[in-house]
Structure formats: structure tokens, C-alpha cells
Nucleic acid binder design. Structure first.
Lengths: 210, 210, 210, 210
DNA sequence: GATGAATGAGGATTCATTCAT
DNA sequence: CATGAATGAATCCTCATTCAT
């Protein structure tokens, strides 16, 4: 009896692994397809062709196109939030902490260029669930950046700015730079340089400090 | 005979005027519809309903949905490029010149919020013609900003940066701030303050100048 | 101007007529297709093939399969209720009045055999709207028959029965006889005889009157 | 050796019993599911869930959805035909014999309401085999009722009618009354009264005997 | 025997575009 | 010129059935 159970368990385990592998394969295929064509131009047919599965199999793993895209969004959000650590303003060197955050986000974007592209480009207004998730992500990012701005101002490192606008500006700068440098068009492809440049831009701005 | 010709001319003239008025009405309707629903969710049906014309008439004025959208893009591009004047680095006060440019672009966005939204949001990857036009716009903007960065560096006003990346960052910052402030969500709605904040952000950056 | 309006009017009129003719053609095609295959086995493809129209045209006239079927049901209900006149119990000869009703319903069934078949067979439980319409029809029929039973009992012509059950029985008898005799399978096809037999069955029952 | 064979036999026997039990469980589940949702709305998924078996197992016991439904039909036919005994016209009291038959059929319907509903409602036109079985059932019922009508006419108890039509009418009356009274909607639920009413309706008809 | 993941034919519906009037 | 009915390619999704484990 014990033997039988163990056997069944092992089988179930393998099935579970296979299942999650397949799910992953679909998501990776979707990443490629959506990344290349965008949400609208991409059809389920293309996803299943890329994943090498049948029509029905797709619906075994996802409730539909929107659900699949939501999963992509969630993965991206997970990657980005996982890359960020909240900066302690009282720490010895908050700036280098920020640089590390920047570097890790840049790394995420370079490692998942299609995913990054599709999420940054056309993820708004497709579906309530998706919008909500993104609202939460941007809310989180805004809070983080605004917090840093406010703390920096308090400690006299940063000049007084309108935090919501400047946070928006910084986030937009980030998005655009990443988007444009995923498929290098006469621009930086060294991640380090890119991260450094972004950091410098955000922190120091453009004027020569006198 | 002369009389007749004159008469025909006047008629042709009126027809021409009518034609261009109608075309305009369609574009304005499209601006509203696309702005509210986005390119994909908006159907030709909605555009023609909003314009108060028939289905067939629409195709008398435009080659199709994409051609209509291209026209929108072109109008936006015209507005933006029309708002910008090239900054002469040798001028007495290049900075205030830049601020004026910023202000005028902000004005354009505030005067055409739907148009701005739809162009900034989901205009990429729909159609080759559209992409090309946008590429040209962004090329122009990049050149302009990069030029200013380089000139600023030459004259010692601006620190040495990687111009393409920083130009991209600035453009992205602009896009995001405008997008987010078209429908004010707890943010600035005074155009002047917004332009000033953007200008300060771009030029001075965040660090307190010492 | 008057001329133009008249012209436009005539055109609109003809368009209207064409429109309603086409709608009718679709309904008639649906009658045949649903009648032969039943609701489930029939696909929109078959209906549009039978109607000689394109896929899109169908959706120009009907919201979908259910809406088309609802129209069929409504037509049938209209025919049946149109065939029935309420019997005045105080009239000189209520029985012959009833016979006339029976005859007219039989006529309806013979003139629309496919429609009758599909409605009587498998119209329940497909859709709320449809169920509601049918509930109303059956409610009407029940009231009518029960009323006749009660009046007949009052005037001493009919023995005392449980009206709801007997009304149900009579309606069921009708349905089955019609259903079976639409495509004559060794049975009556003369409408008059059928109506007479049904009437006799319902009124006199089976026992020899003594 | 003998021992071993006996052992194997016992094992085979038990397997056989298990097999038939499982088959039965599936049929009972199907009865519930089809009864509640109808043939079309019910999916195999729902049946296997209700039966607590796996997808593949189902196809080990039945050739498919139609075959399962055929089994249901056959069970119903078995119940109905098992409830009926041929009435000997020469017997002392043929009428009470008929009443007993009616009562037993009513009992069957009340004991298997879902099965009765699904068979009476939507069993036609799904499949040739099914139609054939039902044709045979109805043929049997018709013969029986027609025989009774003819015999009754011979013995002078029943007036001369067109037997096929009246038999159809009686069967239809039965079906409708049962269908409507399985889920009592302001109607009889006492089986005895229902059977009595049906019997009276069928035998005596409606006129007051004079 | 039992399982359940995989299959793919089939169905309903949408919408940009055309063209006869 | 204007109209709007007609078109049909394209898309998403379901579910009965199969088959490797």
C-alpha cells in the first residue's frame, strides 16, 4: 500500500511539474508573440503556434486572451517590484542604494525585453483587472519615488520640487529610455552605463553643479 | 461664358470648402472617439456616428481607419513641431527660449487632450506609415534636444552627458507628465506651473546646486 | 425641393420594403432549417446558406441565434393566438365556436409545419426570453381551456373535473396530435377530419353517450 | 488447481459486480445531470463530476454522450413497458385493469422525475439509434392504446373513433400532464388523484353521461 | 483498468471595407 | 456626391473524444 501511494505521489509530482512547465512555455511564447506584435495584433492562434500546442490546450491553462495577458503583466510586476528595495533615508549612502535599484530594474528590462516592451507600451485600457494591477504598480512606484524626493528634500540633498510631477517625470524618463534601448537604435546597450546615466540624470539633472 | 465660368468657379470653390469642412468634422469626431476609446476599441461606426455622416461618405474622405488615424497623427505632429522653435545657442538667453518651447508644447497638449492621449498611448505598431511619421517626429525631437544638450555642454552650462539617452529620458519625462496631467488626478492643472516644473526638472535636475 | 423629398421618400419606402422582405426571407429560411434539424443541430451557417445571404448580413437583421429563434417563437405565438377567439359561454352554440377554434389552430399547424414542430418540440430552456414568451402562451391557453371547462361545468354540459389537469391533458393531446400529423405517418392528413376528431375527443371523450 | 480457478472466478465475479455498479453510478449521475440541465446544456464534464470518475473512465463504460443517453432512454423504456400489462378485453373488469396501468406509469414518472423529464422533453432528433428506440416505444404504446380502443368499440363500451389519432391524443395528454406535474406548479401532486383524473379523462371524456 | 492532459473540429460573432442605388 | 445594406475574413472559445502513462 505504501508503495502504491509513493508511486502515485511521484506520478502526481511529475504531472504537476509538467503542468507548470507547459504553463511556463505558453507564457514564454506569449511574451515573444505579444512583444513582437502587440496585444491587439497578436491572436491566440499565433500564441499557440509559437508554443507548439493545440487550441484546446491553451484554454486548459488560461481562461482566455485577457487572462494570459494579465499573467504577463503580473510577471512583469513581480520582476520589477522584486528588483526594488525601499531606500532607508537614514542609511549611510542612500544614493548608492538608489543606484542599485536602478541597476536592477534595468537588468530586468534587458532580460525580458519583449515583456517589458508590451507592458510599457499598450497595457492600459484593455481590461479592468489589468488596469487595476498596473494602477497598483504605478502607485507603488510613485510612492517610492515621491518618498525619496521628500526625504531627500528634508535632508537638504534635493531641492524642493513638486513631488508628484517630478516622480511622474522620472518614471516616464525611465520607461522611455528602457523602451528605446531594448532594441538598441544607435544608443547604449551596456546596462551599467545605461543605469549610471539614468541615475545621474535623475539625481543630478543637467546643470553643471557650481 | 465668362459669367458661367465664374459661376462654376464659385460653385467649385464652395464645394471645395464644403469638402474640407466635412473632412475636418470627421477628424474632429475621430479625435474625440479615439481619444475616449483608444484606437482599437473605437470602431468606424462610432466615428461616423459622432461625425454625423454615413458609412460610405467616410470612405469618400479617407482610405480607411488607418489613414484616418494617420491624419490624426499628422495633425498632432504639426501642432507639436509648430510649437517648437530651434534655440539659437548664441542667443542672449537660451534658457528662457527653452522654457517658452516647453510652455507651448504643454499648451498644445492641454488644448488637445484626447489627441495627445491617443497619440502618446497607442500609436506604435499599428501601421508602417504611422510608425514612419512618428519616427520622424521623434527623430526631430531627439535632434533638437540633443542639439541643445551638446550646445549647453559646449558653452559650459550643462554637464557632460550621453546625449541620446538623456534626450530620450527628457522626452519620456515629458510624455508621462503630460499623459498623467491631461485628466488631472490630484496633480497640477495649471499649465504654467506644469511647464515650469518640467523645465526646472529637465534643466536643473534634482540636486541642490551648491 | 418637393420633388426631391418625394423621391427620397419613395426610395426610403422601397428600402424599407426590401429590408422587411429580407428579414422575412431569413425567418422563412430559419423556419425550414430549425424545423428540419432542430435548434441545436442547426447552425447559423445553415440558416444563412438557406437564406442565400452572407454571414454578416444575418447579424444585420438579428442579434444572434437566440434572437432569431425568439422571432420564430413570436411568430408562432402570434399565429396561434390570432387563430383563437374567446368563447362566450352565453352564446347560442359554444360548442361550434370551440370547433372553429380547433379548426383554425389545426390550420395554422398545417400551414407552418416546420415552425410548429420546432416550437412544440424543443423550445424550452434555451433562453429566458423564450421561456417567458412560451410561459405566457401556455398561460393564455390554460386560462382559455380552464375557463371553458369551468363554464361548461356551470352550465351542466361538462362533468366536474380538476380543471388544471384536464386543461393540461387537452393541450398535451393537441400538441401530440399535431406533431404526429404534420408529417403524416399513416395518419390523418385531412385537416377537417383531424380537427373534428380532436374536438370530439376533447368534448365528448370516449365513452358512448347513453 | 480447482482452488485457484475458484479464486479467480470469485475475483472475476467481484470485478464484474464492481463494473456494473460503476456503470450504474454513471447512469444515475447522468439521470440527475441531464434531468436538471437537459441533454444539450449538460456536458460530459458535469456527468463525470457528478459520478466522481475521471474523463477516461467514462469512455471505458460508454461509447460517448449519445450512447449514455441511449442507455437512459432504454432504462426509461424498460420502466414504462415494465409498468404496463396488456389488458385482456375479455376480462371481467378491463377498466380497472387500465386504471392500474395508468397508476403504475404515473408511479414510474414520479419515482424518476428527472429521467422522465429529459426523455419526454428533448429526446427526439439527437441520434438515429435513440429515435429508433423511441419509435419502438411509441409504436408499442400506440398499439396498446389503439387495441384497447378497438376492443372497447367492439364491446360497445367506447364510441367509434379514429384510433390512431385518439391514441396519439391520449399519449400526448399523458406526457403533458406528467411533465407539468413532476415539479408541481399549483397542481396535483397526489399520484393517486393524478392517475384517477387521467383515467377519467381518457375513459369518460368530458361530457356528462346522460 | 484508471487517469486526465491534449486535441481540433466546429460554432458564434465582429467589423473594416465595398458598391449598387 | 451621398448612402447604408451587404460582405466575409478573422477571431475567440467550447467540448466530445482520444491516448500515453
Amino acid at each position: 500500500m505504501t508503495r502504491k501511494v509513493a508511486y502515485a505521489d511521484r506520478r502526481a509530482l511529475r504531472a504537476e511539474r509538467q503542468r507548470s512547465e507547459r504553463r511556463d512555455a505558453i507564457v514564454r511564447a506569449a511574451e515573444r508573440v505579444f512583444g513582437k506584435l502587440g496585444y491587439h495584433a497578436a491572436s491566440i492562434s499565433e500564441v499557440i503556434d509559437a508554443a507548439g500546442i493545440s487550441r484546446g490546450t491553451f484554454y486548459l491553462y488560461f481562461d482566455g486572451k485577457d487572462a494570459l495577458f494579465l499573467e504577463l503583466i503580473e510577471r512583469f510586476i513581480g520582476l520589477v517590484t522584486g528588483a526594488l528595495t525601499v531606500v532607508d533615508p537614514a542609511s549611510a549612502d542612500p544614493a548608492s542604494h538608489i543606484l542599485e535599484n536602478v541597476q536592477r530594474v534595468v537588468d530586468v528590462a534587458f532580460e525580458h525585453p519583449e515583456l517589458t516592451r508590451v507592458v510599457l507600451r499598450e497595457s492600459r485600457g484593455l481590461n479592468e483587472d489589468i488596469d487595476e494591477k498596473l494602477d497598483r504598480l504605478y502607485g507603488f512606484l510613485h510612492e517610492m519615488v515621491e518618498g525619496a524626493l521628500i526625504n531627500g528634500a528634508k535632508s537638504g540633498l534635493i531641492r524642493k520640487v513638486h513631488p508628484p510631477v517630478v516622480a511622474t517625470a522620472l518614471i516616464g524618463a525611465f520607461k522611455e529610455v528602457l523602451l528605446r534601448n531594448l532594441a538598441p537604435v544607435g544608443s547604449l546597450d551596456g546596462r551599467k552605463e545605461l543605469a549610471a546615466e539614468l541615475f545621474e540624470f535623475g539625481i543630478r539633472g543637467l546643470l553643471v553643479s557650481r
